[in-house]
């Protein structure tokens, strides 16, 4: 029944979709293909030498790990608490509406503006200096809306009946939440949070102004130290290095490590989530 015109339209739709797929595949293949030969144990476990032209990226990996852990430590409790309030306690009042508006506003703020904000508040006003602390707090503000939304979704997925049956047995509101809601929504909250954190690990703009140092061969000793970070390291190697062509293998290897880290976190969380979804099917 399909005529030629319809066939062409179908072809066009399919072509548009698969050209996007092709481009993604090409980018991944390019990074992996050029990155793998430059990877070595020394690269992963050694400090950089000759301002990044040789040696490894261990301090950058450790720095990113510290920043991400700090972000998680701050943003996870705030996100869970905020989501609990919004989904379990909040009534339709001015405060709730203001909070919801704030969350959607926050979600749209450009990452570099978070950098400016972190610079103004944490680095200068609070006098933390450019440090792990300032960087992690800035990143935490950035991922907070995503985490709240993810946690709220996980809470909403728990059937209402579980709450009411607990309340009917005489539990207080918090008891009902603690025993009948939190245990079932926790996996969803955690995986949603991990997804948000994966994005934070790859962000450059906010830490550019608040935490990152380019060449710091030793590991950070306290949360008030500056750190190297993978995304920032890649940026500097690719654009600021005097011999950018010569250090190309180092650039590709750093890009690959960052890519694997972020994709690994994201895919891990996605797989976990689908597993939990299968486990609790209401």
């Amino acid at each position: 029944m399909k005529n030629a015109g319809e066939g062409l339209t179908y072809l066009g739709l399919r072509l548009a979709t698969y050209s996007v797929v092709l481009v993604i595949g090409y980018i991944l293949a390019d990074i992996i293909w050029h990155g793998i030969p430059a990877l070595s144990w020394e690269f992963l476990s050694g400090p950089p030498r000759q301002s990044g032209a040789a040696g490894g990226i261990l301090p950058a990996i450790v720095g990113t790990f510290y920043l991400v852990s700090g972000t998680l430590l701050v943003a996870l409790p705030l996100g869970i608490g905020g989501a609990l309030y919004l989904s379990e306690y909040a009534t339709r009042n001015r405060l709730t509406m203001a909070i919801r508006l704030a969350i959607s506003t926050l979600a749209g703020v450009p990452s570099i503006v978070f950098g400016l904000f972190g610079l103004g508040l944490f680095v200068i006003f609070c006098n933390f200096g450019a440090s792990i602390l300032a960087g992690a707090l800035t990143l935490a503000c950035m991922v907070l809306p995503t985490i709240i939304v993810a946690c709220e979704e996980a809470l909403l997925a728990v059937p209402q009946g579980l709450r009411s049956s607990s309340l009917a047995l005489g539990a207080t509101k918090w008891q009902a939440i603690r025993t009948n809601v939190l245990p079932y929504s926790l996996p969803g909250m955690l995986t949603g949070t991990i997804l948000a954190i994966g994005r934070a690990a790859g962000e450059t703009a906010p830490i550019l102004l608040t935490a990152a140092a380019f060449f710091l061969p030793r590991l950070p000793g306290s949360i008030f130290d500056q750190v190297m970070a993978l995304p920032y390291h890649l940026y500097i190697l690719a654009t600021q290095h005097p011999e950018a062509e010569k250090v190309r293998p180092m650039q590709y290897a750093t890009a690959l490590v960052l890519l694997l880290l972020v994709l690994g976190i994201t895919m891990g969380a996605t797989i976990l989530r689908s597993r939990f979804r299968k486990k609790y099917r209401w």
């Binding site: 790859g202 962000e203 995304p231 890649l234 690719a238 650039q251 890519l259 994709l263 994201t266």
Partner: peptide, 12 residues
Amino acid sequence: LASIPSVVLGFF
């Protein structure tokens, strides 16, 4: 594609 860090895309 959404989770590829922007700095990696920029490098590419």
